[in-house]
Design a protein around this nucleic acid. Structure first.
Lengths: 194, 194
DNA sequence: AACAATAATGAACGATCGCTCAACTTTATC
DNA sequence: GATAAAGTTGAGCGATCGTTCATTATTGTT
């Protein structure tokens, strides 16, 4: 009995994520979203509830994809530090042309959203960044176990250090477009870690 | 002849800057601005032309204030690196409670604005970040001349490094609120530079 | 006191915002 | 083919957006 939905939920979330990522939360209107996902407002609201909730799903999708990208980078390298370096190069240099924005969607969200007007969206974005940092800590633990790391720092400290470099450098790359400088910067980071 | 304006232009720009800084460009409405500057729409438009133009003036004011804050930090320390460290501590830890946002207003703007919907606002924000980096380079040149710096890096490289740490750490501090971690991070940065 | 010149006001414009819902379409079941 | 259940549609709601402009208020000059 009943009719089955004709839209593909995964594809819709993917397209919504890309639009939110490009334009940010406030600058993305429901009509913009209706256009890119090719659905009428009634269907969108039946399926996702609200603009806020769709943004939440978009954030989660972004987090999933980021985790996959990190895993892919790790899998393509023989060392843990090599994997992290590949990941860092990907987000700052390689993927810059293809992605909806050169900036990290989560950092964009943390920068845009305030505690007053969307506390749970902000909390979710912050939580995702913490999760990512925790996965970096796991990787650095591996790197330490493998004897790849020269410094005395703990996995948590190394993860924090890497997170700051990632956020800072990705934003920096957005401003300058100086690929050579970014490349050199990344090399310096890993020269020091080794 | 004529009537003289009763509002104080500097104060109005200051208040507008603080609201834009807190809420971001898109989430700040002209009616929000009318409230905080206590002016009617006709007066605002006669004085500033448009929401975009008022935002430009706000960005410039922010840049001026940032330059003053940097100069103040430098003046309060005997060494160039000490001044930079004070500045970095100020924006990530000390001023966090009092400022409209823990984030840098320029970084927020670069994150929020896109090439398509406001190219000149974006260009101006990027330009301000370049100017700030150039002032860091001057300071590092002094530090090198004074023999404060241990590394072989050029002033431009050191400025880029500092800019990335500043952007990354300020954003990081916004996410975690872990003051001890940030404090330690800053200490590590300057341990290495010395 | 009359006159320019400029500033301040705020109602209101057309556009767009997030969102709703009554009407309609499609499907599975009997 | 009648019925029930669920998905789709899009006109349109009230609110708010950035902005305009006719009107009013305030000033220095004559």
């Amino acid at each position: 009995m009943s009719k089955q939905a004709k839209f593909n939920r995964d594809e819709v979330i993917e397209k919504a994520k890309n639009l939110y990522w490009e334009k940010g939360y406030h600058a993305t209107s429901m009509r913009n979203l209706q256009d890119v996902v090719d659905m009428r407002p009634g269907s969108i609201y039946a399926a996702f509830g609200s603009k806020d909730n769709l943004f939440k799903e978009a954030l989660n999708r972004y987090a999933e994809t980021s985790a996959e990208n990190l895993a892919d980078s790790m899998a393509q390298e023989t060392t843990a530090l090599g994997g992290l370096k590949r990941f860092l190069r990907n987000v700052t240099i390689c993927n810059k042309g293809t992605a909806p924005s050169g900036m990290c969607m989560i950092v964009k969200s943390v920068a845009e959203l305030t505690q007053n007007d969307s506390p749970d969206l902000l909390a979710q974005a912050k939580g995702i960044l913490q999760t990512i940092e925790a996965s970096f800590a796991n990787i650095f633990q591996q790197a330490i176990n493998n004897g790849e790391v020269s410094t005395q720092k703990s996995p948590a400290e190394l993860a924090r250090y890497f997170q700051v470099q990632l956020i800072g450098l990705r934003t920096y790359a957005q401003v300058t477009n100086d690929i050579n400088a970014v490349e050199k910067f990344i090399d310096d980071i890993f020269k020091e870690l080794h």
